[in-house]
């Protein structure tokens, strides 16, 4: 627990100091402000498509920090040092997942408020969107981190990260966007299941990827 806290504190401090936390927020707001230019100012159309559009934006925003999540620490030898101390890679990835979500999820959810207003979503739709993001952003963070561990040792990992992550993100997108039009709550449950799965496998899969990438 103490170790987890130390690792999370370091990750948060680095994320804050590098300013990389604001990249996904800026991206989401940019997409939300450009979208009406592209489809026109029809309020009804914007309200109908805006929720799905913001889900796509959130998904793509989660890919932006991928190249600075793990690779710098591999290059600097931080992960070697942790491993030499007998600290399991699973713990390292779990700590990073928590820290990454804290720096990614809540800021994105805050940015969604002005973004949803730009897209003429009403209060009920905005509430559904925020709840969906609360369930879905841990999975987006997990997916980004998982891909980051897999591509940590590679050059030009950015493009590969997109190719690896997007197919796995399809269930999140389907159920996430589904929550916008669904009254029964089934989409929320499927979204939560998909999210839970990704969050649960990431420490193990990411830990294995880090071990395999060590040379």
């Amino acid at each position: 627990m103490r170790l987890l806290w130390l690792l999370i504190r370091r990750d948060l401090r680095l994320a804050w100091a590098s300013g990389g936390m604001w990249l996904p927020v800026a991206f989401l707001l940019l997409v939300a402000s450009l979208f009406p230019f592209a489809v026109g100012p029809d309020a009804a159309l914007l309200a109908r498509t805006g929720g799905g559009m913001l889900w796509i934006a959130a998904l793509l925003a989660s890919l932006l920090p991928v190249d600075r999540l793990v690779a710098p620490d591999v290059q600097a030898g931080v992960l070697d040092q942790l491993a030499a101390r007998g600290i399991g890679e699973e713990w390292i990835v779990l700590a990073r997942l928590l820290a990454h979500w804290i720096g990614f999820g809540p800021p994105l959810m805050l940015a969604t408020v002005p973004a949803a207003t730009l897209l003429k979503l009403d209060a009920a739709a905005m509430a559904r969107l925020e709840l969906g993001l609360l369930i879905g952003t841990p999975a987006l963070a997990a997916l980004g981190l998982l891909v980051a561990t897999l591509t940590a040792g590679l050059r030009s990992s950015g493009a590969l990260a997109g190719l690896l992550a997007l197919p796995l993100a399809v269930p999140l997108l389907i159920f996430g966007a589904g929550t916008m039009s669904d009254g029964s709550g089934a989409a929320f449950k499927f979204l939560a299941a998909a999210s839970l799965l990704l969050v649960a496998i990431t420490p193990f899969a990411g830990g294995a990827a880090l071990r395999a990438g060590r040379d």
Binding site: L3, L14, S18, A76, G77, V78, D80, Q81
Partner: peptide, 24 residues
């Protein structure tokens, strides 16, 4: 282990960077 990799946070002051590992 002391290899060719520094493993200290570049932006942090030296004392704080060393203190992270000391805490670990």
């Amino acid at each position: 282990l002391c290899d060719e990799k520094l493993a200290l946070d570049n932006e942090a002051p030296l004392h704080r960077a060393l203190s992270f590992w000391a805490a670990i």
